[in-house]
Design a binder for these strands. Structure first.
Lengths: 170, 170
DNA sequence: ATAGATGCAAATATTTTGCCGCCAG
DNA sequence: CTGGCGGCAAAATATTTGCATCTAT
């Protein structure tokens, strides 16, 4: 079943203070990493994001909270979070250029399912996926620490829309 | 004298002619696409590749067959093949920069399993993976036309190598 | 003959780095 | 106080595009 990105609460009006709470901030603190003003803002953005964001979107949202956040800092913070396994990086099959997308690493991995026509991206969780990763871990005797699965096709709305079949070029 | 890329077809002196056979060439011909000298060379490289190649590797191998192949043409041909679903594009979790890797699209999808430490990449096929894609197709009522699964961890050799446990960053 | 392909240079897009002043701990 | 962090500009990497020329069909 398709899982909606339900989680990730958007806290009310904390637009200028960058709350000191939030899962990501707590994780950073626990790891003894420095919590600067900019990082707090970026973490807040990530925590509140209802879906994957690209670097420019992160920057844009961060600057709405505090204009003194620089693109380079977004990159560096993203890197930090990636290194510590706190966020996941996606390509979404390069639907729109070669940029990357980021989202907080939740408790369960999910698959991203993208429509190659309209670009809509949905998330999908499955026990099969967990089993698959276990199988890989067993067969290769390796700890699987990151995994990314992206699937593309033409979604049912788009299929309906084109009724009279035409050559569906990518 | 350019040394042929070892493996498979080592047809003696065909270094300048680029054989007219090969699955990819036949596919292009069947689709009515123009088969230029450069395309033939690039298709030959892809057909003979024993593993995924990045754009520079494709160029390098192509130029050994026929020096008159330009990087831009590699990009354009790759694009063409991608559009027609004849090759797959990988990121390999961005182990080394943000470049892309390409391989001919075989009959069965496979998963790429990469060691984040040593960079070795292995392939993995599984019925579970096929089932997973079927599940997605069913649940979302969509035709899945492309899929990419990349998994990372520390391989057993690397784990053995570091015996005295250290903090495995990244 | 002619639509489409290639080469070359230059433009884009995306991400990283060097250096220095600044701030969190 | 001090070492890591952020800002800025510039570099590096990766890919795309405009245009004139060439070529496969």
């Amino acid at each position: 079943m398709a899982v909606a990105p339900s989680h990730r609460v958007s806290s009310g009006e904390r637009l200028n203070t960058a709350a000191t709470t939030g899962p990501l901030q707590q994780s950073l603190r626990k790891k003894g990493l420095r919590l600067t003003r900019q990082r707090r803002v970026i973490l807040q953005v990530m925590d509140n994001a209802e879906q994957h964001l690209d670097v420019d979107q992160i920057l844009e949202r961060a600057q709405k909270i505090n204009a003194a956040v620089h693109l380079v800092t977004v990159y560096r913070t993203i890197d930090l979070l990636k290194k510590h396994g706190l966020i996941d990086e996606l390509d979404l099959l390069h639907l729109r250029g070669d940029r990357h997308y980021y989202e907080t690493h939740g408790p369960r991995d999910h698959i991203h399912v993208a429509c190659l026509r309209c670009g809509k991206v949905r998330e999908f969780e499955s026990r099969l996926y967990e089993q698959l990763k276990e199988q890989i871990a067993r067969d290769f005797q390796m700890q699987v620490t990151v995994s990314r699965t992206e699937v593309g096709g033409i979604c049912n709305e788009c299929l309906a829309g084109e009724s009279g079949k035409s050559k569906a070029s990518v």
